[in-house]
Design a protein around this nucleic acid. Structure first.
Length: 546
RNA sequence: GGCCCGUUGGUCAAGCGGCUAAGACGACGCCCUUUCACGGCGUAAUCAUGGGUUCGAUUCCCGUACGGGUCACCA
C-alpha cells in the first residue's frame, strides 16, 4: 500500500505537518510543578454538578501558578444548544471559578486556540494524515447498518464487541476498493489501526487512584467521523497535547476508554498527561445506588441550586468537603478563612462513588448563612427573589426596614441561629413577619386554649410595654403566668401537673402562635420589636376567640 | 458477556502492618433553657467474604460476592 498516495487521496488539502503545530504551540513557560488543566464541556446547555466538580482543577492550577482554561467540545453538532457556552461561563463564574484562557462570551483568549474543537479541523486532519502516512490509519466505509449487524453477530457468537480482527473488514483493503467507494461517494470514517494485544497490560499512573493497569486497546476505533470532525478520543489527545495540558481531570466513566487515549499518546510519541479520574456522584434509587442521571435527577443540574437559592459559597463548600476529605476539618479549624486558602490535593480525593447528600449540603448552608451579616442575608435574599420570587422582592423593597429587621433576628453573637440554608427556605421562614403573608399554621397549645386563651392574651396585652427591656418584659410574663395558675418552672409542672393549669411553656407558646402563627420561632421579644407595637397588638387581639 | 473501577457505621469518611477503628451529617437519649433554636454530653459499627503472606492484617496478594461504570461516526 502506498500510504503517501492514500493520504493525499483522502486529505489533498492538508499540506502542513505535526511539526508546524509543535512550533505554533510551544511548551508553556511556567514555573516548575505548575498544573495546566481545563474543563471541556460539550455545549448541551446542561451545566451540572460534574462540571463544577471537575472545575476543582481550577484550584490545582491556581495553587501552582499554572493555567486553567475552558475548551468547548462541540464535535457533536446534533447536541449543541444555543447559549450553552454562556451558560457554562456564567455558572462557573457564579461559583467563583474563573478561567485564564480559552473560550469567552465574546470569542476567546489565549495563545493555544482555537478553543472550540470544530474550529480545529485542520489540526486534527494534519495529525490524521501523519498517522495515515505511517500506515496507522485507514478509511472505513461501513454503514451504520453494517456495524449494527456486526454487533449482533458478535453477540450471537459471544465474542467481544468492536471493530477488530476479522471484523475489521476495511483494515487491509487494496487501494482500488477504496478508490471505488470514494468514486461512488460513499461516506467514510477514518479508523486507527491498532497493533495492540489484549494480553498486554499497561500501567498508567492516575493522579487520584495511583497505579492503574489497563488492557491494551485492540480495536480499530474511529479517529475522524464522516464529517471530518474527530471523535472525543482523538480530539482529546490532540488538544490536550497541543494545549500543553498537564493534568486531565475527568469523571471515572472515561476509565473504560483510557486504553485508546494512552495508545494514541504513545504512538504519536507525545508525553501523556497525568490522568485524574474522579469518582462518580451517586444517588439512592430505592435500595441501590446509581449514577446521578441528567434525565431523572434535577439535583444534578447546577440550576437546581440557584433556583432553590442555596448560596453559591455553600455549594462550593459542600463540594470541597466531598472532594477533599481533609477539607472539612480544616474548615472547622478555620471557619472564617477563605475556602480558597485551603491547599487542595489530588491524593485526598475519594476513589469510590459517593452519594450526594442534600441533608449535609443543607447543614453546611445553614452553618454558612448563620455566620453572615444581616445585610448580606438581606441582599442575597433580595437578589434571589428578584428572579425566583418577584412578589417577595416587591414586598422586600416596600417594607425594607421590616425585612432587614426580620433577617437580623437571632443573628450575631456567639450562637447564631441556623434557621435556613437557602433563600427559598428563608422566604418561607420569614413569611410570618410580613402582614401580607402572615398566617396561623400551628395549633394553640392545649393547656392554654379554651377560656384560658383570652385570659392570657388580655393579661399580656394589658401589661405589654414596648419600652421594657427584655428582662422587664419577661418578668411580666412570669407574673402573668403565675397569676393565672400556671407553673413558672416547667419542671415543677411536670412533677405535679394536678397543681397547675400548665406551665409557662404553654403561656409563651400561645403568645408565640398568636404573634408568629407558629410554635416554632425565634425569640418573641425580638420578633415583637421587629413587627412594631401596633402590628403585635393587632395579632394578639385577633387571636382572641369569640 | 468482555474489560475496568470500587466495597470501613443510615450517609460522607479518617486510617496507609500493631489504635479501646478519628471526625462530620442524620437519628435517638440526657443536660442547659420561658419557648424555638443554639450549645454541651452521650448512645448505636463483627472494617463485604473466603484464602494466603506475616509474630501480627481494616491496611499487602489472590479468589468470590455485591455495587458501579463502559463496550457509538455521544461526550
Amino acid at each position: 500500500m502506498d500510504y503517501q498516495a492514500l493520504a493525499d487521496l483522502l486529505f489533498p488539502e492538508i499540506t502542513g505537518t505535526i511539526g508546524d503545530y509543535e512550533a505554533k504551540y510551544p511548551p508553556r513557560n511556567l514555573p516548575e510543578g505548575a498544573v495546566v488543566t481545563r474543563i471541556a464541556p460539550s455545549p448541551t446547555g446542561f451545566v451540572h454538578l460534574g462540571n463544577l466538580y471537575n472545575a476543582i482543577g481550577e484550584r490545582l492550577a491556581h495553587q501552582t501558578g499554572g493555567v486553567f482554561y475552558l475548551r468547548i467540545e462541540d464535535t457533536d453538532q446534533k447536541r449543541e444548544v444555543e447559549g450553552a457556552v454562556e451558560a457554562v461561563i456564567d455558572a462557573m463564574n457564579f461559583y467563583g471559578v474563573h478561567f485564564d484562557e480559552g473560550v469567552t462570551k465574546d470569542g476567546e483568549s489565549g495563545a493555544y486556540g482555537p478553543y472550540r474543537q470544530r474550529q480545529r479541523k485542520t489540526l486534527y486532519q494534519t495529525v490524521a494524515k501523519a498517522l495515515l502516512l505511517r500506515g496507522l490509519a485507514y478509511p472505513c466505509f461501513c454503514t451504520e447498518e453494517d456495524l449494527a449487524k456486526m454487533h449482533e453477530e458478535q453477540e450471537a457468537a459471544k465474542e467481544n464487541y468492536g471493530y477488530y480482527g476479522k471484523y475489521a473488514i476495511w483494515r487491509d483493503r487494496p487501494m482500488e476498493d477504496i478508490k471505488a467507494e470514494l468514486q461512488k461517494g460513499t461516506e467514510w470514517v477514518l479508523r486507527f489501526r491498532s497493533e495492540g494485544d489484549p494480553a498486554n497490560m499497561i500501567p498508567v499512573q492516575d493522579g487520584i487512584r495511583g497505579e492503574l493497569k489497563v488492557q491494551e486497546n485492540y480495536t480499530d476505533f474511529v479517529l475522524l467521523k464522516s464529517d471530518g470532525i474527530p471523535t472525543y478520543h482523538f480530539a482529546h489527545v490532540c488538544d490536550d497535547h497541543f494545549m500543553r495540558t498537564t493534568h486531565v481531570i475527568r469523571d471515572e466513566s472515561w476509565l473504560a476508554t483510557l486504553p485508546i487515549h494512552v495508545q494514541l499518546f504513545d504512538t504519536l510519541g507525545w508525553q501523556r498527561p497525568v490522568y485524574c479520574h474522579t469518582a462518580t456522584l451517586m444517588k439512592m434509587d430505592g435500595s441501590s445506588k446509581r449514577k446521578l442521571s441528567k434525565r431523572k435527577d434535577p439535583e444534578l443540574a447546577l440550576s437546581y441550586y440557584s433556583e432553590a437559592g442555596v448560596p453559591q459559597e455553600a455549594t462550593w463548600l459542600y463540594l470541597l468537603t466531598v472532594l477533599n476529605s481533609n477539607f472539612e476539618e480544616w474548615h472547622m479549624a478555620n471557619p472564617d478563612a477563605d475556602s480558597r486558602a485551603f491547599t487542595f490535593s489530588l491524593e485526598k480525593m475519594s476513589t469510590s462513588g459517593s452519594l450526594f447528600d442534600l441533608e449535609k449540603l443543607d447543614n453546611i448552608a445553614k452553618e454558612y448563612l448563620s455566620r453572615q451579616s444581616a445585610d448580606f442575608v438581606y441582599d442575597g435574599l433580595l437578589t434571589w427573589a428578584k428572579t425566583y420570587d418577584t412578589a417577595l422582592a416587591e414586598r422586600m423593597q416596600q417594607k425594607e426596614a421590616l425585612y432587614r429587621g426580620a433577617v437580623a433576628v437571632g443573628r450575631g453573637g456567639e450562637k447564631p441561629r441556623k434557621d435556613y440554608g437557602s433563600w427559598s427556605a428563608a422566604a418561607k421562614f420569614l413569611s410570618f413577619y410580613d402582614a401580607d403573608t402572615f398566617e396561623i399554621t400551628d395549633a394553640c397549645p392545649e393547656n392554654a386554649d379554651g377560656d384560658k386563651r383570652n385570659a392570657i392574651l388580655d393579661g399580656y396585652l394589658e401589661t405589654l410595654d414596648f419600652a421594657d427591656t427584655q428582662e422587664e418584659w419577661f418578668a411580666k410574663v412570669k407574673t402573668l403566668t403565675e397569676s393565672l395558675g400556671y407553673a413558672v418552672q416547667p419542671k415543677k409542672y411536670k412533677k405535679n401537673p394536678e397543681l397547675y393549669c400548665g406551665s409557662i411553656v404553654d403561656v409563651t407558646n400561645l403568645l408565640r402562635v398568636a404573634v408568629t402563627g407558629r410554635q416554632n420561632a425565634p425569640d418573641l421579644w425580638e420578633i415583637s420589636h421587629v413587627l412594631g407595637e401596633a402590628e403585635t397588638r393587632r395579632r394578639l387581639k385577633d387571636y382572641r376567640n369569640g
